[in-house]
Amino acid sequence: MVRSLTTLIGLFLFWLLLSGMFVPFLLAAGLGSAIAVVMFTRRLDIIAAEATPTYLNWFKFVAYCPWLIKEIMVAAWDVTKRILHPKMPISPTMVEFSPSQTTDTGLVIHANSITLTPGTISVEVERGRFLVHALSREGGASLAGSEMDSRCTSLERH
């Protein structure tokens, strides 16, 4: 019930942000469609536990985002140089390693961060086993036990 309520509030705020008009008719239409969507998700039984994200360390997550953006910039610049280099100095590798996260949220954040960083793509994601395709050997070698791994683990809260 709490999840349904948070989903409803979130959907209504989303509607307000997108419409930006505060006419009574549009407000009522927004509330009506938000209630309809919540009823559909209840019937389909897909109200996710993520609707009440209590098991993520939000302070650390806020600190993680700028760090990830910096990492993305550095990696993208590296990939850019490799693409524009006349000889294309790439050495594609597949790397298998085991991440240290235990919760699904931590694993998903780690895998998404890996894919978001240009130069590395997570191909297979399982608990305790990541298969990553890297554009360069150096990029692949630095994945296991990386700073990203430990930072993602510290985001988790049990």
Binding site: V79, I83, M88, P92, L135
Partner: peptide
């Protein structure tokens, strides 16, 4: 320019992020 599918994805991810 990239030689195979997996490496092409790295090129596309530059467009999608930065």
């Amino acid at each position: 320019r990239m030689p195979d599918f997996y490496t092409r994805m790295h090129g596309a991810s530059v467009t999608e992020t930065l």
